[in-house]
Write a protein that binds this DNA or RNA. Structure first.
Lengths: 218, 218
DNA sequence: GTCTATAGTCAGATAGAC
DNA sequence: GTCTATCTGACTATAGAC
């Protein structure tokens, strides 16, 4: 009996996870609208009706795909930011150090296939610019604490900046990171760079921090 | 007879233009997949079959929507860049001056409703991150000359930079501009900024140039 | 919790009259 | 060049057996 229940539970979890994995991958590759439930359930090796059973609607599935990755990611960012602020004592942490606590957790995720890896990062990057109603509704919620905490930290790091300048620059920072995550080959706009390796995540991170810190302090 | 022919021609042009206008607006608001030909033709006050008659397919319409705006925009950019280089003579133009020739034409377009205005800019910004096959195919073509000319100009302006660093920074620049154009309220991620006015296009341009130039020269 | 079968809707595209 | 009418196919979602 217990074995049976465990089996049921494990199947249940595995089914949900398989759907989430397939959806994540397909949404990242083709976009939300262009991905049908049929394609998702086929790739996940589950029945077509399973999505509606487990997630209610296709939009519900999309939301779960994001929540599963973004919540732990942002928690880690806030923990690192707190630690950094404690270590700095009375001094405000540097812009570089603050941005590093924001970017490095994303870097870690992007290298860990078990947490979505580059696939989810691509999806996340694209989502910042998407008109999809569902995404526009729940994403700001997922980022509320991030905005507040990083706004305060960066404000202390560049106190000479007017408030509106600070916010615009934070906006630019987020945009740059989002587009970089969305895939360096997103539009192959810079297709001709023979030296650029999109898989060199550490190198990109370093370049991002350098570039963004300079802009932030300008 | 002549009057009749002129009328036909004018109807033809007006029909195509009305379809393009409606499609541009609806694609920008809802995205490509989420916009049906029925919605477009209804808003344009033309018959459903007109899209297929004039543009072949829905994808063909999308391509025309982009071409109509991007080609003149990029031509103006290249003219300004050339002029700037002539004026500078043997000296390389500054990063700020180069970026200004890139951003200002977009600014001008965004203020001119007759050329698409903010609506098209939003669509264009989003398109950089879109997985749509059609867009990924024709956009790099539209930007080939831009990439070459600006790559050379910026390379001369920051000669200390390694080639791969230059390309990455160009990528960051394009990403930031695209994201900013995609709509400052794209995800309302920075919703809480009480001072930020998304309609203050000159102010945003100035801030963009400052931010990006600092990053470029870091 | 999983499956089959299907309802109900809407999509892009075209044939053929005018 | 424009229109009506319609084809064909795909989609999400659900009811109900197991």
């Amino acid at each position: 009996m217990n074995a049976r229940r465990r089996q049921d539970l494990s199947d249940n979890v595995a089914t949900k996870a398989r759907i989430l994995d397939a959806a994540e991958h397909l949404f990242a590759d083709r976009g939300f609208d262009a991905t049908s439930l049929r394609t998702i359930t086929t790739e996940a090796n589950v029945n077509l009706a399973a999505v509606n059973y487990h997630f209610g609607t296709k939009a519900g599935l999309l939301e779960e795909v994001f929540k599963r990755r973004v919540e732990p990611l942002n928690e880690e960012r806030l923990v690192r930011l707190s630690k950094l602020q404690e270590e700095s004592g009375a001094d405000a942490p540097s812009v570089e150090a603050i941005l590093t606590t924001f970017i490095e957790p994303a870097l870690r995720v992007s290298r860990d296939p078990a947490h979505g890896g580059m696939v989810f990062m691509r999806l996340l990057g694209r989502s910042y610019a998407e008109p999809n109603e569902q995404i526009r509704r729940f994403m700001p919620e997922l980022y509320r604490d991030i905005e507040i905490q990083y706004g305060e930290a960066l404000g202390a790091a560049v106190p000479h900046l007017a408030v509106e300048d600070l916010y615009w620059r934070m906006h630019f920072v987020v945009g740059t990171i989002a587009y970089t995550m969305a895939g360096t080959d997103a539009l192959q706009l810079l297709a001709s760079c023979p030296y650029c390796d999109p898989d060199d995540v550490e190198g990109i991170t370093e370049r991002l921090v350098t570039f963004l810190s300079a802009g932030m302090k300008a």
